[in-house]
Design a protein around this nucleic acid. Structure first.
Lengths: 348, 348
DNA sequence: AATTCATGAGAAAACGTTTTCTCATTTGAC
DNA sequence: GTCAAATGAGAAAACGTTTTCTCATGAATT
């Protein structure tokens, strides 16, 4: 019984149920006064014809579009996607849909997207990036809707979410120490990343201030080079490497294998990011710190919703705990072979 | 001069410009009749106060929301993201925004998302997947808006886009042959994938019907295993491998290196997918077939727009050509070292 | 000087809802 | 049997646009 062409309006519904438009509306929303029989009849007819209210019309009146925008400059989507998944998951059952806008690093493109979103009366904007200490190429400080920042730098008065990388690093190193590793090295990315400094500081706090940190870049190549550098130098060799991301870890594992050094028997490896597609496919599968970006997205979603509903939210940076996902690249207690449970996730 | 709280409406604009609402509207849209001076004055005031029409109100009237939905079950986003980027790129300057809806493989979740999109009066839906021969877990055959399928199976009367994998495979093998490779093997994924059969058929058509195809899974492990199997068998060894995806290629390269076989000097490797993050980080960087998913997204976007505007579009499957992105894993002409140009892309 | 015509601009309807207000009818209390 | 109160339901306004229609005004034609 789909109307000729368009969808059924409340007008059609009212006619079919033999009531006025206002009564129909009130019946559906459980508001107003009317006989119980009438209310049920309207609802029944609505169900029968599959009536669904036009959200545009509702939005026009209520000034809530049940729509938010997710702005990102993370082209490859490695960080954005989990965040997006979390946002979406948190909001879908509240009827909120998400506009995804990928603005490279192009301010003009960003402006176009923001304008389009505002025209469509989004209830709020979540800005995400790929780097916690960089801003998006567009200023959101005076858009007329609430803004929440996730994994990107917001202004001083903004609400931001990011992972607690110090916590993640601590988890990793403590786990290594608990499995009996004595000489742990940290091989990580460029020092000008805030995350790098946060992680390396935490690393030193747990592994000892004298522990070695090697800064480099975020590539497999650097992971290999670091291993070459370490193993071709004189002195004691480490029995564990804590890597700044999974790609570095992968490079390191490859280089170790080429040198005939066994992972995890001789050297345990822990990565960072828990980028499933890399970490789980590695040989051996990589133990890695998971920043729980999905949870981060979920919280950002709930927060933007709260703001949209007019609730006050304390500005500031909120950090979320990390998780250590244990796989075989750091055998439990350094014992040979037996290995830790395959892909089991462990929350601490 | 942002109004108290809300945004400026055309009412405010009209008042400020000293005209009626209708005149204001007509001035902005370059319709109706009025003095040129009036028109310019309205436009000027609009510019000054940064007036932007409320898309909800426009949509209510015009029955076009300038909004489309992108539905996907590709959780990891490896295929969806480039498609999304293309869609967005094609539509953003036409003022169309995109709802991204990730429905795992959950029909109920899919229905929720579709309903939400329809409530919001999307002008159309693009359904994308991760496999050309599988349907999404939800039936879109009678949604009241146009639907276009991209990288997923649509119904018989639907409009679908997919890459021309036969073409991609042909490009790869011809390139290898042109560089002087004689014995080319194809190591690919599970035979029940349509793409796999299409690629392997094309492979055989170019490499010779007797050429060997090894079916397996989409993992690095399989790539390694395949190499082990080939090189531990008796008989001539191949001088080139055409792999079904980049992960298999990666596994193959790793296994070859462990055997002391040089890539590309002894064996050239070509992958499929051109998954930058894998292909470009490999050592050596991987030559790979690019399905041009972004272009696919662009075309899907333009098509859904055409349909939304009421234009007729011939149903059927449209295939898009692939590109071969040449990197160092297949040295030109088998010559040593000199190698082909780094990351240069080559369209054929 | 009377008629037509083009021009400029506003009034009002429409889109599909929700909400407030009003009104008629029934119920209950005296 | 009268009056107040409660009940059921509809009319109308509002949201912010676009579009069609109407109406003055002044210019051009007789």
């Amino acid at each position: 019984m789909r109307g000729k062409g368009g969808r059924q309006t409340i007008r059609d519904l009212a006619a079919l149920a033999g009531v006025s438009i206002s009564t129909a509306s009130k019946a559906l929303n459980d508001t107003g006064r009317m006989g119980e029989e009438t209310r049920q009849r309207v609802k029944r007819v609505a169900r029968e014809i599959g009536f669904r209210p036009n959200a545009l019309a509702q939005g026009l009146l209520s000034k809530r579009s049940f729509t938010i925008g997710l702005l990102t400059n993370d082209t490859y989507g490695r960080f954005t996607l989990p965040v997006m998944a979390g946002v979406s998951e948190a909001l879908v059952d509240r009827g909120v849909s998400v506009f995804l806008c990928a603005i490279e690093d192009d301010p003009a493109l960003g402006q176009v997207h923001v304008d389009a979103m505002l025209d469509k009366q989004v209830d709020g904007i979540i800005a995400t990036g790929k780097r916690v200490d960089r801003r998006l190429p567009i200023d959101l400080s005076d858009v007329p809707v609430p803004v929440v920042y996730a994994f990107t730098e917001g202004g001083p008065q903004s609400v931001s979410f990011r992972s607690d990388d110090a916590h993640g690093a601590t988890l990793a190193v403590e786990w290594l120490k608990a499995s009996g590793r004595q000489r742990i090295l940290h091989v990580t990315g460029p020092e000008d990343f805030f995350s790098v400094r946060e992680r390396s500081d935490a690393f030193r706090a747990v592994a000892g201030a004298a522990a070695t940190v090697l800064f480099g870049e975020w590539s497999e190549t650097w992971g290999r080079d670091a291993v070459d550098k370490i193993w071709s130098a004189a002195g004691d060799k480490p029995d564990a490497l804590f890597c700044g991301n999974d790609q570095i870890a992968r490079g390191a594992v490859d280089a170790l294998r080429e040198r005939g050094i066994r992972v995890p028997e001789d050297v345990a490896i822990v990565g960072f990011d828990n980028w499933e597609i890399v970490a789980a496919q590695m040989r051996p599968p990589l133990t890695s710190v998971d920043m729980d970006l999905k949870e981060l997205g979920r919280q950002a979603g709930l927060t933007i919703l709260a703001l949209a509903e007019g609730q006050a939210v304390e500005p500031g940076v909120r950090t979320l705990p990390c998780r250590l996902v244990v796989r075989q690249s750091c055998g439990a207690g350094g014992s040979v072979g037996a290995g830790s449970p395959g892909d089991e996730k462990q929350r601490r």
